[in-house]
């Protein structure tokens, strides 16, 4: 017996998908960040932003676009990176249990010498490992572009931003894993995870508009990750604690849930 066979199987089986996502993330970074001197630091751009409705500017997070940290946050962490990693998290989290169960493969795996808890643990770990990889890749690329693009990001703050991105996408993935373990249904797992991500984004956007609605952001995982502007201010331990703590709680839910029910498929 060698260690973590299911984890290794998941990673080996998903390398094509991971390669595709890696290319997507790299492309997003390489397209956006080098343009900072031309867009964020550009006087014309500032004038353009001034003419736009402030609600729109706040919604897409472009109110900070004139600094390197703000630009990186609004283009990548808050938008393209968030979007790409969220989609990846939803699809991997859904496939980990519910997708595998619905296509009949889980039955065969569980007929072998593995426990259901082992399946949940190793598959969750595989999803987490892939998200970590995408986040590391992002971090390294941003670091490489930091000087050339004149972003002037501090390394510690970059780590905090990457940790926040990982936290919010991991939470989304774990929603999919947990709902999959509870129901065994792809559609439910996918819907719940995508719902949490979209709702989190929307609550944050609405909460940004006025002080009266700012409380909405207390319910948004997106806000837990980014409202304290980690690229500027460093780690927001409270927000990170919520993201990783809830992810761990959802893992426990998944472990218990799959162990207690019939495998259908």
């Amino acid at each position: 017996m060698t260690a973590v066979p299911l984890l290794r199987r998941s990673l080996a089986g998903g390398w094509r998908s991971l390669l595709g996502w890696s290319l997507g993330v790299a492309a997003a970074l390489l397209l956006y960040l080098p343009l900072f001197p031309a867009i964020g630091g550009n006087a014309d751009m500032r004038e353009l932003l001034d003419t736009l409705p402030p609600e729109l500017v706040r919604t897409i997070g472009y109110d900070q676009i004139t600094t390197g940290a703000g630009y990186t946050q609004s283009t990548f962490f808050g938008l393209m990176g968030f979007l790409l990693l969220t989609i990846a998290a939803v699809s991997w989290g859904t496939a980990a249990v519910a997708g595998d169960e619905e296509n009949g493969a889980l039955e065969l795996t569980l007929a072998h010498g593995v426990s259901r808890r082992q399946v949940v643990l190793e598959r969750s770990a595989a999803v987490a490992a892939r998200l970590v990889w995408l986040c590391l890749l992002s971090g390294v690329l941003i670091l490489l572009l930091n000087g050339p693009a004149g972003l002037e990001l501090r390394e510690g703050n970059l780590v905090a931003g990457v940790a926040a991105l990982l936290g919010v996408t991991l939470l989304t993935a774990m929603v999919a894993v947990a709902v999959g373990a509870l129901t065994g249904r792809r559609a439910f797992a996918l819907g719940a995870a995508a719902g949490v991500a979209v709702l989190g984004y929307a609550l944050n956007a609405v909460g940004n508009q006025t002080e009266d609605l700012a409380w909405l952001r207390d319910w948004s995982p997106y806000a837990w990750a980014f409202r304290e502007a980690p690229l500027v201010n460093g780690a927001d331990w409270g927000g990170l604690g919520l993201l990783y703590g809830l992810s761990a709680a959802l893992l426990v839910v998944a472990l218990v849930a799959l162990d207690r029910r019939d495998i259908t498929g």
Binding site: G104, A105, L108, L110, A111, H112, G113, V114
Partner: peptide
């Protein structure tokens, strides 16, 4: 798992995708 290691199972609907 220890018991299932002593069992070989062929599912009725084998879907290998």
């Amino acid at each position: 798992p220890a018991l299932r290691r002593r069992i070989g199972f062929l599912p009725g609907e084998l879907r290998l995708e």
